[in-house]
């Protein structure tokens, strides 16, 4: 079920604070965040976030299309290199 509109989008407070700080500081650096559950807000467009995937921070350059989605969607948590059998089959 979708989130109630009256609550507004969910964003962890520290993400907002960090984003604002980097906005004001001018220097565009990767903002490291762990909050994969936070919504991407319009004011984040143009910033680069390092979204934690459980192992390291994946740099995500926020564009307009991403607004409304969560940070976690841009930082895959699983690595999968395929099965050995599949690769053999492909080589033939």
């Amino acid at each position: 079920m979708a989130r109630s509109v009256w609550k507004g989008p969910f964003v962890d407070a520290y993400v907002l604070k960090k984003a604002e700080a980097s906005r004001e500081g001018g220097r565009s650096e990767v903002i490291k965040i762990w909050s994969r559950r936070s919504t991407i807000l319009p004011q984040f467009v143009g910033l680069t976030f390092g979204v934690y995937n459980g192992k390291k921070h994946i740099p995500v350059n926020v564009t307009e299309d991403m607004i409304g989605q969560k940070f976690g969607e841009y930082s895959p948590t699983r690595t999968y290199y395929g099965h050995a059998a599949d690769k053999k089959a492909k080589r033939k």
């Binding site: 564009t63 299309d65 991403m66 989605q69 976690g72 969607e73 841009y74 895959p76």
Partner: peptide, 12 residues
């Protein structure tokens, strides 16, 4: 196509 270009989970 938009989802795929975005590099988000659904696109992957």
């Amino acid at each position: 196509k938009r989802l795929m270009d975005l590099g988000c989970y659904r696109g992957l």
